[in-house]
Amino acid sequence: MTDLPNVIETEALTRRFGDFVAVNSISFQVKAGEIFGFLGANGAGKTTAMRILCGLLSPTSGKARVAGYDVYTESESIKQQIGYMSQKFSLYENLTVRENIRFFGGIYGLSAAEQKRKSDELITRLGLSHEANKLVGSLPIGWRQKISFSTALLHQPKIVFLDEPTGGVDPITRRQFRDMIYETAHSGISIFVTTHYMDEAEYCDRVSIMVDGAIAALDTPDRLKQQFVANSMDSVFLQLARHARRNE
């Protein structure tokens, strides 16, 4: 895996809001096809960092490249290369499954024919043929999350950002979702995921834990557990985040 190209590279990336240093000089790389867990307590600066990498926010200083493009000057090119699925629900509830897929395909530049082909293909793959013409709002939350994730992959991004994708989902759906993540990463697309489920941190290739705006630890789950003499990521997290000073 070490010879694969970096999809994200940051160096001393910093973002200030007035006096407040939300993200304090973070440096890390994410490789192609890697599942990268981005953890931190509430208010540790995760969301800010993620917004910078998605091209929604400019950094104050430091360097960052996403999919080879600079976050300062090429945010529009970045947007074409990333997929994003947010904690807040990201499909239109009053459009049908098919309309949603075609819409998001469309704004990423798929032609009408491609939209049709890809939406048909996706609907079949998710086993949603009967639900394709139902409004998304009428579907259970677990299905919506799968559709939402698949839609974020429609334009074949180099990396997908998942902002707490599995909150409130039953355990089977959560595992099916995890299978999709494995499959996606296997196809070479990097996954950048934030979560409050510490057992989900275990399946990441590497995990970074942010405390008070800085990265306090970054390694594979195994090595982190060794380093902190812990038997689970939960306990690693608690050791690190307990000393956080910042309270949002």
């Binding site: 509430n42 904690q87 909150g167 409050h196 985040a241 307990r242 956080a244």
Partner: peptide, 10 residues
């Protein structure tokens, strides 16, 4: 505890 980080949950 929904949406709250593990430290606060504990």
């Amino acid at each position: 505890t929904t949406g709250v980080d593990p430290v606060s949950r504990k």
